[in-house]
């Protein structure tokens, strides 16, 4: 029982972080119907920036956030710019394009930082926290969870209560209608890529302080992010949260009761089942075409 509770607790914390990783991809997918297969690599890029700042200056890696954001937003906007250059069959060709950009980023990181594994040197993040007398986590895991929840909540609020946010929502629900109402869809798309960059940077720095990083991780993060996005259905933020927590808990339970190498298998299987049985996702409306 205690083991199960701990597994679920760890899974939920993990899920909060996964939500942070996935939500940027979901946002872009929602506005532009483009699945950015380089999204995980953008997250990893931020993580490496945090590593670089920490190892060069010795300051807390969280302070690397402004630089990470600047770089990752720039990278995200470049991806947007390139995606926009595709004229024919954008839905599929953008998949191949961003797949290629992912290869560029992974190998770029490999080139600069080698294939070595890095993690934060700051012991503060590793210290244990005990919640409700029995549930254990590292400080960093709790931090990533809280940051994830705040980011998702903040984004949800922003999409519903600000002018730019509403523009993004109306473009994603009906591009032509939004155009008729005087909105510039390209501007809304630009905003969504920029925000996706901010979210990827947050996720990357959290990744660095909670876990270890090496180049192939970017690809796994991308896969996790699109799994969650598909589970959630068309760009639904609450859907992303529930999907991410679900994947987190499934992985937590598999790791505890079987082995960690099977956790990915479990989440992948759930993904395929949902995709095949409910192609519009757990929380999605029926796709409109």
């Amino acid at each position: 029982m205690e083991l199960t509770a701990q597994a679920i607790f760890t899974g939920l914390l993990m899920g909060g972080f996964y939500g942070l990783v996935a939500v940027g991809l979901a946002l872009v997918f929602g506005t532009m119907k483009v699945i950015n297969l380089a999204h995980g690599e953008l997250v990893l890029l931020a993580a490496y920036i945090a590593y670089a700042v920490e190892s060069q200056t010795g300051i807390n890696p969280l302070l690397a956030m402004p630089i990470a954001m600047a770089v990752v937003i720039a990278a995200s906007l470049i991806t947007f710019y390139l995606t926009n250059k595709i004229k024919k069959d954008r839905e599929l060709n953008s998949l191949i394009l961003t797949f290629g950009l992912g290869i560029v980023l992974t190998n770029g990181l490999l080139m600069v930082f080698s294939a070595d594994i890095y993690s934060t040197q700051s012991a503060w993040f590793m210290e244990g926290l005990v919640i409700a007398d029995s549930l254990f986590s590292m400080r960093s895991e709790m931090l990533a969870f809280v940051v994830g929840l705040c980011a998702l909540g903040g984004l949800y609020w922003w999409l519903n209560h600000t002018w730019h946010g509403r523009a993004i929502r109306s473009v994603s629900s009906n591009r032509d209608a939004a155009k008729l109402m005087g909105m510039n869809p390209t501007k809304a798309e630009l905003w969504s890529w920029a925000i996706a960059g901010v979210l990827a940077a947050l996720a990357g720095v959290m990744l660095y302080v909670t876990s270890v990083i090496h180049p192939p991780i970017g690809h796994s993060l991308t896969i996790k992010a699109f799994i969650i996005t598909v589970l959630a259905g068309m760009g639904s933020i609450p859907g992303v949260l529930v999907g991410a927590l679900m994947i987190g808990v499934i992985e937590g339970l598999t790791t505890t009761f079987f082995q960690s190498s099977l956790s990915e298998l479990a989440s992948m299987t759930v993904f395929l089942l949902v995709l095949l049985v409910m192609p519009s996702g757990l929380f999605g409306k029926k796709a409109g075409h």
Partner: peptide, 8 residues
């Protein structure tokens, strides 16, 4: 290291 960058 990372020559596949060119492929991308």
């Amino acid at each position: 290291q990372g020559h596949q960058l060119i492929l991308g």
